[in-house]
Design a protein around this nucleic acid. Structure first.
Length: 484
RNA sequence: CGGGGAGUAGCGCAGUCCGGCAGCGCACGCGCUUUGGGAGCGCGGGGCCCCGGGUUCAAAUCCCGGCUCCCCGACCA
């Protein structure tokens, strides 16, 4: 591993040599995030945080358009509250951190959990606001941090503390709650595919991977460039499990006391890691334009003060127009040679670069370079804003198409456990197989392959053939993969 | 929580075995020359050698105790 301090591509471990080290090198050298003195906790640096902010904005707009409202709930959850829903406790207790002292003068009569997720406190609070069927549905969301004491951490993908949104909704009927789960899953698909250019499998999780306390969980599953799957968002139907444990009820139209049906759903800063691992290459990051903090980097080239002034005047001639079209453009006036800047912006994955020197000024043009092909194309300065807008849209599409092609090339189909095991001896990617629905067969695959699991499946899709493990009639066609 | 590795300048490391002036590369500051794919030369600043004890004339180095981080597994968004 090369770990020199200078922030250049020559110091990034090659992806093909060691994907894990490549990832860590890129995250740190592109100034996305870094380690801190706090165990398992990262600092998200401005360039990484800006990506998260863009994701936040996009998703926040989506949920508000369908009537969801943001709230904020306490970070600390009294032990008694956390402990009401049996399977939820079982799932989360191992990774919960506790506050057991409260300063010099404070007294705690019970310890307080630092939220690992907020079903318990939100349910407890929201029950006060739900009396009648007229109060439903309640469509709440909060943007916050949570803490889960993970033993093994990885920047963005798994840290003890992370940022996310958690939606929690309360409904009068099960059907309405199940529709909510599907609506949010569709939003997540759009965020991933339309904004991040990462194709995903949408579907339901097997029972063993269902959220602690849920009736069923759905997910979006993306493929990283090492062929491993990344669960990138989840949407859960809780049935009346939480409503029952926390007594979240309402009076129905015909004056009957009924329990709510609830959902919860979340996406996190893990999505930033997904962008890095789904699109990056040996040169560094590749940012999808729609969430790229900088969409166009301009590198001025000049020899002396006179040249500098000439180039500066030329650039000023069109930056206002470009920015006015909502394009995030940055002119790099920092010291340093052009070559150094080319490499820095490529490392950071900026989709488009404009090189502008005296020759270009004379010709009334700029040299356009895109991060995918890295070919140099002269384009006229006249109408540059529209040209850049088109190029960014094309780039977004090309990146998505590349990811689709990559996934297709790394997706396979098998019909027997032997074939599954053989594939994952050295192989990666998604492997579809018919499955009977039995947990034992799922476990068997995991044991025999050393960790391959069912990512998700389309519940409506009926499988033909027989279960890859037990040979009984198959019920579902499911996607298997190694996952993060 | 098991196994492994590492804490020395902002970053990456050598020095530790065999005790004896605190080093190298990059980064950083200044000057000059440069600038269309990672510039060159010169000068310069910067240290709680992870923490606490012990041994010794003398400890980055040896001994004892502790802390932290990273990697690999099992667990997880």
């Amino acid at each position: 591993m090369i770990e020199n301090a200078d922030d250049f591509v020559k110091d990034i471990t090659r992806m093909s040599d060691d994907f894990d080290h490549w990832y860590t090198d890129v995250v740190r050298k592109a100034e996305m995030a870094d380690y801190t003195p706090v165990r398992g906790c990262m600092v998200i640096r401005p360039y990484g945080y800006a990506v998260w902010e863009n994701i936040q904005r996009a998703f926040d707009d989506m949920i508000k358009s369908s009537g969801h409202e943001n709230m904020y709930f306490p970070l600390l959850i009294p032990e008694e509250l956390l402990m009401k829903e049996a399977s939820h406790i079982e799932g989360f207790t191992p990774e919960v951190a506790w506050v057991t002292e409260a300063g010099r003068h404070g007294r705690l009569d019970q310890r307080l959990a630092i939220r690992p997720t907020s079903e318990t406190i939100i349910g407890t609070v929201m029950r006060k606001y739900i009396q009648s069927h007229r109060d439903l549905p309640q469509l709440t969301n909060q943007w916050c941090n949570v803490l889960r004491w993970e033993l093994r951490t990885r920047l963005f993908l798994r840290t003890a503390e992370f940022l996310w949104q958690e939606g929690h909704t309360f409904h009068a009927s099960g059907q309405e709650a199940r529709d909510e789960v599907d609506l949010i899953l569709e939003y997540y698909r759009q965020i991933s595919e339309d904004w991040l250019a990462i194709p995903v499998l949408t579907g339901v999780k097997s029972q063993s991977e269902t959220f602690a306390g849920a009736v069923y969980s759905k997910s979006i599953e993306a493929m990283m460039r090492d062929g491993q799957a990344l669960q990138s968002g989840t949407s859960h139907y809780m049935g009346q499990n939480f409503a029952s444990a926390y007594d979240i009820g309402f009076t129905s139209r015909d004056n009957q006391r009924e329990l709510c049906h609830t959902t919860s759903w979340g996406i996190s800063t893990r999505l930033v890691g997904a962008v890095i691992m789904a699109h990056g290459d040996d040169t560094g990051l590749v940012m999808p334009p729609r969430v790229a903090p900088i969409q166009v980097a301009v590198v001025p080239i000049f020899r002396d003060e006179a040249g500098r002034a000439l180039v500066a005047g030329f650039i000023e001639g069109w930056t206002a127009e470009v920015r006015g079209m909502g394009i995030r453009l940055r002119v790099d006036w920092s010291e340093g040679r052009p070559g150094e800047k080319y490499n820095r912006w490529e490392l950071k994955g900026v989709p488009l670069r404009l090189e502008v020197g005296p020759r270009d000024v004379a010709a009334g043009q700029v040299v356009l370079v895109d991060r995918l092909s890295r070919e140099k194309r002269p384009v006229p300065a006249a109408g540059l804003g529209q040209r850049l807008r088109d190029e960014l849209a094309d780039f977004q599409d090309a990146l998505h198409r590349r990811a689709l092609d990559f996934r297709a090339a790394n997706t396979h189909e098998v019909s027997s456990l032997a074939a599954m095991v053989a594939h994952f001896q050295g192989g990666t990617g998604f492997v579809y197989a018919p499955w009977c629905g039995g947990a034992e067969c799922e476990t068997r695959v995991k044991d025999e392959t050393g960790g391959v699991t069912i990512r998700n499946y389309e519940p409506e899709e009926r499988a033909s053939g027989t279960c890859l493990v037990c040979g009984r009639p198959a019920v579902h066609r499911v996607a298997f993969a190694r996952s993060y």
